[in-house]
Simulated scan of single mutants.
Amino acid sequence: MPPSSTAVRKTVEAYLGRHPGERDALAELLGALDRPVDTTARTTLPEHVTCSAVVIDRQGRVLHIRHRATGGLILAPGGYIEPQDRTLLAAAVREVTEEAGIPPDALCLTRQLLGSPIDIDVHGIDASPSKGEPAHRHYDVRYAFYLSGEEPPTIALQDEEVSGAQ
């Protein structure tokens, strides 16, 4: 069962406690959380929540992958929340595992945030007639992880969604 609107609101409000200047940018998301809709569902329009994982190695390098769905944009691993994701954090971990093949036990949360998002990015998504989707907004909840091992794990890209990594 995906996170409830109450759980998403709690995450957003905690984030806004650290970044109060972003309240206006997230006002529409807060309004959507007051409506009886599942803001984590891909079909909820004109906006919905997605999750990403910012993966940092011991040298301070950040993993970026080339997403096919975005026309090849280079972004952090991430995507839609699935029904089996119990939390937003779990969705971010699942996405990095699916897209880059990095197992959950290779990831450590940052001490400073203890599992709180480092960013909530608001960005527009172009219409996709082939998917029957109109233009809409993503509220991408981004979590930071350090790699736990001395050596970075082998990257195993999910071919249908990802075309490269750096």
Rank of each mutant, 00 (worst) to 15 (best):
I120T: 11
L89V: 01
E151F: 11
P103C: 07
P3V: 15
R18H: 13
P134L: 05
P129M: 00
L63Y: 01
C51E: 09
D119M: 01
T87Y: 02
T44S: 12
Q166C: 03
A7V: 03
A100L: 07
H19S: 01
Q84A: 14
V141H: 09
A127C: 01
D105I: 02
G164Y: 04
A90V: 05
T6H: 11
T87K: 00
A144I: 09
E28N: 03
G60S: 08
L147V: 06
P77N: 13
L29D: 14
I65N: 01
S116K: 11
G115H: 06
E151P: 00
Q59G: 11
L26F: 07
V54F: 08
P36N: 10
Y139C: 07
A92N: 04
G17R: 07
V12Y: 04
E133W: 09
I155F: 01
A127N: 08
S130N: 08
P117G: 11
I125L: 15
G60T: 09
P129T: 09
R66D: 07
I120V: 14
P152K: 05
E22F: 02
L75E: 12
L114Q: 14
E160D: 15
E150H: 04
P129G: 04
A165Y: 11
A14P: 00
I74A: 15
I125M: 13
T50E: 10
H19R: 04
L73Y: 04
A135F: 00
A76W: 06
P104M: 05
Y15V: 04
I74D: 14
L109K: 09
V141L: 10
R9N: 07
S5T: 15
T154L: 10
P83T: 08
L75C: 03
E95T: 10
K10P: 00
T11D: 12
L26C: 07
G101N: 00
G72D: 10
I155S: 06
S52G: 12
I102K: 02
I74N: 12
G79L: 11
I155H: 03
R142T: 11
G31F: 03
R42Y: 09
P129N: 02
R18A: 15
L113H: 12
T50D: 03
P36M: 00
G149E: 12
G72M: 05
G17P: 05
I56F: 09
D38W: 01
L113W: 15
R111A: 14
I155D: 00
P134H: 09
G132W: 12
P129F: 00
H67F: 00
L33R: 01
D119I: 06
E150G: 04
L147I: 12
E95W: 03
P77F: 13
E47I: 08
